[in-house]
Amino acid sequence: MTPSEKPQRYRRLQAVLAARMAQQVLRVWRDLMNPAKVDASWPAVRAALIPIVQHAREQSAALAGSTYMDARRNAGVAGNNFDPSGPLPLMLRRLEAALDVTGPVEFKKAIAAGKSPEQAMESAAVRLVGSTQYLALEGGRQAMQRSIEADGQAMGWARVTDADPCAWCAMLASRGPVYKSAKTAGDARRGGNTYHDHCACQAWPAFTNDEPFIGIAEGLYDDWLRETRGRGGKHAVNAFRRWWESEGRAAYAAPERP
């Protein structure tokens, strides 16, 4: 496996982990949730979901830690006395609140909007999967980001996307490697370590000041410069988003575009 393939392999492994957890979440939701007795059935559903999310978050963090150390060794970084950082603790009340909002609350909102119980169950399922995947993958994302920040040998990170990112993630990936010492004031793409529900992105460490762009990021950088020329701030963001949604996304999905 070439060095350029390893970031994408790591992203795919995290995606597989999230997909497997999503299957478990959906199974619990569909087996235990009674749409005719939402409030009565929800406590058992939530109790079953909590350890599933916590376990997936631990797996994501462990994968990030081992991957970080592999990337560090492969980069030829001297010294083996660095231990990767773990994620911040996931507070139970935060997890419970996320489950409540994307489970029964979302179901009731869908019913109030005129959806059938079956449609409301599916609407809530989509939200529930997105929220739980975010919290699970946050374990790995935080472990990677905190390791980079704590490691004096790490220069920064790059955002690794899949082949079909949203406009926001494509914009952030277009920055390429983001160095810890870089000044991002005035750059509308700052905040490259932020993620959203159903997001497929991951961070990859950079150990030199001349790291290559990863995946589609180099093409996105050229596109960003072209589409935002003469614009700044939110005007640049909006211009890039309009281009991405009208033609950019389709161009990157086409077979002839790497």
Rank of each mutant, 00 (worst) to 15 (best):
E149M: 10
R190M: 11
T102H: 13
P43Q: 00
G186P: 05
A203R: 11
V16P: 00
Y10A: 05
M21D: 00
D223C: 05
W204K: 04
L128K: 14
K109H: 11
N238K: 03
L90P: 09
S41P: 06
V53I: 15
V105R: 15
C201S: 12
A113T: 01
E149T: 12
A110I: 11
P104N: 03
E118M: 07
A18R: 14
T161S: 09
R11S: 02
W157K: 02
P205R: 02
V105L: 11
A110K: 15
R189E: 01
P51V: 03
A78R: 15
D222S: 12
I216Q: 15
G233V: 06
E96V: 10
G140Q: 09
L13N: 11
L17I: 12
V28A: 13
A110E: 01
R231A: 05
F207L: 05
A170T: 10
A64I: 01
A206F: 08
S246T: 14
L225S: 04
G219M: 09
T67C: 02
V126Y: 07
A254K: 15
D197V: 11
L88S: 12
A203Y: 02
H55R: 15
Y68I: 00
G79E: 13
A98G: 15
A113Q: 10
V25L: 07
R93V: 12
L220D: 03
S123T: 12
P205S: 03
A44C: 01
L63D: 14
V160L: 02
R226D: 06
A64H: 04
L172Y: 07
I111Q: 08
N34E: 14
V16N: 09
V28K: 05
P35C: 07
Q54L: 13
M155A: 04
Q133Y: 02
A150K: 07
G191V: 01
L225A: 08
